[in-house]
Amino acid sequence: MRIAGVCLPVLLNLVFVFTSCSDDKDESLKILDPSGVNTLTEVNVSVGESWIRVSGGDGEYSVVSGNKEIADVSVDKDVMEVRAYRLGDTEITLADRAGEQIKLPLHVEAKKRALEVKRVAVYVETEDADVKEMLEEELRAKFPVSEGGRYGLMQEKWSSTRYEGKLVVYPGTSNDESYPGTFVWDRNVKPERLTFEYNGVTHVYELPVKGLPEGGESEAGKMIHGDELFEGKSVARDLGPVQAWMGEDFTEQYRRDYPNVTRVISLEYVSFSR
């Protein structure tokens, strides 16, 4: 009786343990949405990096892509990273150490991003006040996008440091007027470089603009239209939209006619999500 009294709880615990383990092993292999709640029957991602979840099986996973030129995949514990390089369709295969596997179609679509123009300004650096005023007026007159306009980017190709795709330029607040084009966003250089081509013209921007004067009492140290430019604060790093001065440099173009000019830049204060 004493042996039975001691062994029965032990046997019950063993039954519970074996039942729990058996239940875990019976859980089928799954690919889930980023929240880890909903089971996916297909994976849809945008060009760039994405993360989804996996579960089930024996808990040790491997994953492969059917076409690594479209997208590559990797898994770390229960998180799968998808690196989508261009538009297209392929298939991913998730397997566990026990040999169970599932295959799901993977569709890569363009990633939409908008650069909203909050403010525009010009910066001319020269000791000749008349030339300075003339060039400022000329630059203001040929701004491609006014305050309230935006650049619509359709990211169709990606590498770790470069996006490219279609561009739609909205020069004003209305959607009635727009210009189609292409863009390249190169993040391998500092500052980052954006190249926009539309209406037969190529525009090259720095983001954020470097080398602008810091705030101060001197005229060169004051921000155009009364605010101040602080180079170190040109890009916001919080969790909200990024805000930065995007600048197109015309210095070399104007220096041919005005040798005393040291810097000529048109500035657009843009807001966008990473």
Rank of each mutant, 00 (worst) to 15 (best):
G5K: 09
L8S: 11
L11Y: 03
F16W: 05
V17T: 11
F18C: 13
C21T: 06
C21D: 02
S22V: 01
S22Q: 08
K25Q: 10
D26R: 12
E27H: 03
S28T: 10
S28P: 01
L29K: 01
L29D: 04
L29H: 04
I31H: 05
I31Y: 05
L32Y: 02
P34E: 14
V37F: 11
V37Y: 06
V37W: 01
N38H: 08
T39H: 02
T41F: 08
E42N: 12
E42C: 07
V43M: 02
V47W: 00
E49W: 13
I52R: 01
R53F: 04
V54M: 13
V54Q: 05
Y61E: 14
V64Y: 00
K68S: 15
E69A: 08
I70H: 01
I70N: 03
A71H: 11
A71W: 05
D72K: 11
D72V: 13
S74K: 11
V79I: 15
R83L: 14
A84Q: 03
D89C: 14
E91S: 05
E91A: 03
I92K: 02
L94R: 01
E100H: 10
E100R: 13
I102H: 05
V108D: 10
V108E: 06
E109W: 02
A110F: 07
K112C: 00
A114T: 13
A114D: 13
R119M: 13
R119F: 15
V122W: 08
V124T: 08
E127T: 09
A129L: 12
K132L: 07
M134C: 02
M134D: 10
M134A: 11
L135Y: 10
E136R: 06
E138P: 00
L139T: 05
L139M: 14
L139W: 06
K142M: 11
P144W: 14
E147I: 05
R150E: 07
R150S: 08
E156Y: 03
W158K: 04
R162G: 07
Y163H: 09
Y163F: 13
E164R: 10
V169D: 01
S174W: 08
F183A: 08
R187L: 15
V189F: 14
K190S: 14
K190N: 09
R193G: 00
T195H: 07
G200R: 08
G200A: 14
T202E: 14
V204N: 03
Y205N: 04
P208M: 11
V209D: 08
K210Y: 07
L212Q: 12
G215I: 05
E217A: 07
K222F: 03
G232P: 02
V235F: 03
L239Q: 09
G240C: 11
G240L: 09
P241V: 10
V242R: 09
W245F: 10
G247W: 11
D249N: 15
E252P: 01
Y254F: 15
R256D: 06
D257P: 01
D257V: 00
Y258K: 05
N260A: 15
V261R: 02
T262K: 05
R263L: 10
V264M: 00
Y269D: 06
S273P: 00
